[in-house]
Computed example of a mutant assay.
Amino acid sequence: MMLPFEKTEYQERVEKVKLSMEEQGIEVLLITDPANMNYVSGYDAMSYYTPQGVIVATELDEPLCIVRFQDLFCATETTWMRKENVIAYPDKFLWEPKKLHVMDFIGDILKEKRLNSKRIGLEFDAYFFTVHWYKSLERCLPDSVFVDATSLVNWIRGQKSPREIEYMQIASRIAEKTLYNAIEKVGIGVRESHVAAGIYSDLVEGTGVYGGEYPSLAPITPAGERTAGAHFSWTTEGKYQDGQLIYMELSGSYKRYHAPLTRTIFVGQPPNTVRETAKIVIEGLNVALSTIKPGVSCEEVEKAWQTTINNYGLNKESRMGYTVGLSYPPVWTENTAYFKPGEKTILKPNMTFHMMPGMWLDGYGVAITESLRVTENGCETITKFPKELFVK
């Protein structure tokens, strides 16, 4: 199997991780976030519902990838390391986890490699790292010191390589085609589930050249009053009606890289409140985009947006953007920098964000978003789609 990146790029990533570990006094890092595992090792399989991990140690020249024996072939096919550094555990470690757990297996490997009496970084707040896992490690590694390394790899992922940007651009083309077809399907009497099925089909079908993958988050497609909620999907029996508002948030996925995109649609003649809200959102979006350049802080971008909508009597309490790129379910955010008040992170070239200037108001919501890349002198949108309220 051809890897999505050159071996040298993976090796450079590992060196960056080790440098960050040294700066934080961490000798061993156990990575359990599947996106972070992929970033350093290339491992790519739908196995994240069982315990697994990648070990990076300053004393080891290559990471160790620990997976379920049933997933060994997946790991040897998708990782760049030597085969002896891909280690599989048998299913007995899953049968009675309160007695024998996968973390016991990982603990034994650390002992075997003489990495147990070390400062070990753990991703405390990763989606797939549980309290039970932590307690198991404490029990089997009593001489270790555990420290929180939740976002260590996430932050390294922030500035994208040219190949990563290329994959996000392909994901964008998939998202654009999908959204265009979804808007075309909307009409009075059309079932919401019919449009949702088309979205899934187009996301997987991809473009004429590139196929797509399953996204890290299901498409968000509320209609009517449900647009006042930020994270509704379609209804199973609902049909689009005249005078109904809809917004669709979705992302293409290519080599696990995402580029989310959102647009709002109105069936029939939009009321002035919806038209005006859309105009305000678009103006605020454009002002925020024009603010972005290297050296600017994330809070300055959010302030530009907030100041613009405040002029019209609106206020957005939630963050209006976040880092995005490589991801697995349940989300496509990288969980690092955000466009929000107090966020001091300084923008650098090739950082990538999903700018999410949505307004969820009393009885309705309007969202028009873009995925973007910070350039040397400003920013460019990775997604290319008309910024407007679509009327059907």
Rank of each mutant, 00 (worst) to 15 (best):
Pro270Val: 05
Tyr39Cys: 00
Leu137Glu: 08
Pro341Asn: 09
Ile280Gly: 02
Val204Met: 10
Pro357Thr: 13
Phe390Asn: 01
Ala197Gln: 12
Leu285Ile: 07
Ser20Arg: 12
Glu176Cys: 05
Ile87Phe: 09
Ile156Val: 07
Asn286Arg: 13
Ala88Asp: 01
Lys83Phe: 11
Met359Lys: 13
Glu123Pro: 00
Pro386Tyr: 10
Glu23Lys: 15
Ala288Thr: 11
Glu123Lys: 11
Val67Met: 02
Phe146Arg: 01
Ala259Tyr: 01
Ser172Ala: 15
Thr333Phe: 13
Gly243Ala: 10
Phe232Gln: 13
Lys113Glu: 12
Phe390Arg: 01
Leu203Thr: 08
Leu19Thr: 13
Glu123Tyr: 14
Val131Thr: 15
Asp71Cys: 01
Ile170His: 06
Gly321Ile: 05
Tyr134Thr: 01
Val131Asp: 15
Tyr49Phe: 12
Ile26Cys: 03
Arg173Val: 13
Glu283Val: 03
Val67Glu: 01
Tyr180Gln: 14
Glu380Thr: 10
Asp44Tyr: 04
His231Lys: 12
Arg13Trp: 10
Thr345Ile: 06
Arg157Trp: 04
Leu72Asn: 07
Ser193Asp: 09
Leu372Asn: 00
Gln269Tyr: 11
Pro349Thr: 04
Ser216Ala: 15
Asn181Ile: 06
Ala288Lys: 02
Glu237Asp: 15
Glu184Tyr: 12
Phe5Leu: 13
Asn36Ala: 13
Tyr312Arg: 07
Trp234Gly: 05
Val40Asn: 05
Tyr364Phe: 15
Ser297Lys: 14
Cys74Tyr: 14
Asp202Glu: 10
Val147Tyr: 02
Gly25Asn: 06
Trp332Phe: 14
Thr352Asn: 02
Glu299Lys: 08
Leu141Phe: 07
Arg173Ile: 13
Met168Asn: 05
Met2Lys: 15
Lys135Met: 10
Leu110Asp: 00
Tyr257Gly: 07
Asp33Gln: 15
Glu59Ile: 03
Asn350Phe: 13
Ile156Ser: 05
Pro271Asp: 08
Ile246Met: 10
Val296Gly: 10
Val186Arg: 00
Thr150Lys: 10
Thr336Asp: 04
Arg82Gln: 15
Glu237His: 15
Pro357Glu: 06
His354Met: 03
Thr235Met: 12
Arg13Lys: 03
Glu334Val: 15
Val145Ser: 10
Glu276Ser: 08
Met355Asp: 03
Asn85Asp: 04
Leu115Glu: 04
Val296Cys: 07
Lys344Asp: 05
Glu22Arg: 12
Met1His: 12
Lys384Thr: 14
Thr352Asp: 02
Val209Lys: 10
Trp95Thr: 08
